[in-house]
Design a protein around this nucleic acid. Sequence first.
DNA 1: TTATCGTAAGATGTGCACAACTCGGCAGGA
DNA 2: TCCTGCCGAGTTGTGCACATCTTACGATAA
Lengths: 231, 231
Amino acid sequence: MADGASDGVMTVKDRHAALHETLRQRICLLDYPPATHLSEIALAKEFGTSRTPVRRVLARLEEEGLVQSVHGVGTIVTDADITELEQAYRLRVELTALTGTLDPVMPGDVFFKRLQALIDRAFEMGVSGTPRSFTELDMDVFQTLLELTANDPLRQVLERLYYQTKRLWLVRAIKAELDLEDEYRIFRHELEAIQIALQSGDLGAVAQVQRAHISMSFNRLVRRRSEDATG
Amino acid sequence: MADGASDGVMTVKDRHAALHETLRQRICLLDYPPATHLSEIALAKEFGTSRTPVRRVLARLEEEGLVQSVHGVGTIVTDADITELEQAYRLRVELTALTGTLDPVMPGDVFFKRLQALIDRAFEMGVSGTPRSFTELDMDVFQTLLELTANDPLRQVLERLYYQTKRLWLVRAIKAELDLEDEYRIFRHELEAIQIALQSGDLGAVAQVQRAHISMSFNRLVRRRSEDATG
DNA sequence: TTATCGTAAGATGTGCACAACTCGGCAGGA
DNA sequence: TCCTGCCGAGTTGTGCACATCTTACGATAA
């Protein structure tokens, strides 16, 4: 995990970042499913601190739309509702396209090796992987591909939108409301397409491939929903 | 100001929002110039509360890049440096264009009256307006035009980028490093162009006009900077 | 039996005291 | 004269006690 400084010292902001990342992971991997009540006291005890730093992280998570704090009630994990997140999803589609035009960065050899390792992971999992393990892989892929742009504000916004919307897929996948075999196959195909575009040196194409797949993924989520409604 | 609920009650989140808006205004209007040390105790005393709520707001302002807190040193207003904000500015340009394609909203009569009032304000100020009063007008215009899209995440990101980048102009304008007469004239022209596009019912055109002017404004800032460097 | 009110438990929000940290100034010695 | 080390004022970060608020449960009366 990100310990922060290379000295081994754990400064204040590092603790904050680590706790934030941990809780975000738990929420987005559904360790804390929607409507879960998070206890500030319990979290403080678990991480060996007091409520004060925990409250700061929870406030940030609330800004990011992952939890909601209500006075006298508790801090509740927000619902992953597709109608509420449609706007965020569509914005994410457009911002992903901007990755190819706003400060694109041609990566070095290390990046290509990491990408190959991710592709290998995807093929090793095959159809045996659980929705959760596939989401973990997807998160690693996302963080990796984020390095293809040097535009920091864009990266921050994309990261926020990614974690806001990612739970939609996992919730549906666990409820077996998605054709997992299809999802896995398409994902592997996307990774290969990205690799091909990268080897061509066309970062704009990489962005367009991602954009197309995010858009299609959302459409599959919506389609399944409307089918359920009519059926 | 935004008191929040219509009951007249001042709930917790309303206090938070009001304090946040106030401090953001003071920073962006240069009441707190860059490098100003903000005292948590002084702010707490001024707003009749304790350090705790003030710290929460300052943490949010730090997330937004307007201040920076360092343990043992203080909470300092960040510098408005054009090289660091160039990425944010270019992202803002592209996101403004998305206003016309992501959930555009055709406004009603009330909106047109408000826009006309803003245009009147711009013409009344003429060349006598101070850079500060023009910035205040620009902020009102921005908040008004933000209503042309119903995409909430887009609005949030645009608002954040706006307040991050707006200080650049005001700093230069106060130092008389900009041709104010030009700036004012172009601004009035932009407002009229937006009005024309709106009356044509073309929200995409409105977005493109804004995009063009934001891009040009940035170019003027950069040009003036490079001239100073060479001269 | 049912409706209603009061009360207590438990949550977040606030205030305050103290810990941890930085930096300027000053004294002392080489 | 300059360098070094120490100290103290001032700031943010943390912990804890209390205030405030919501909700569920149960007693009580119709």
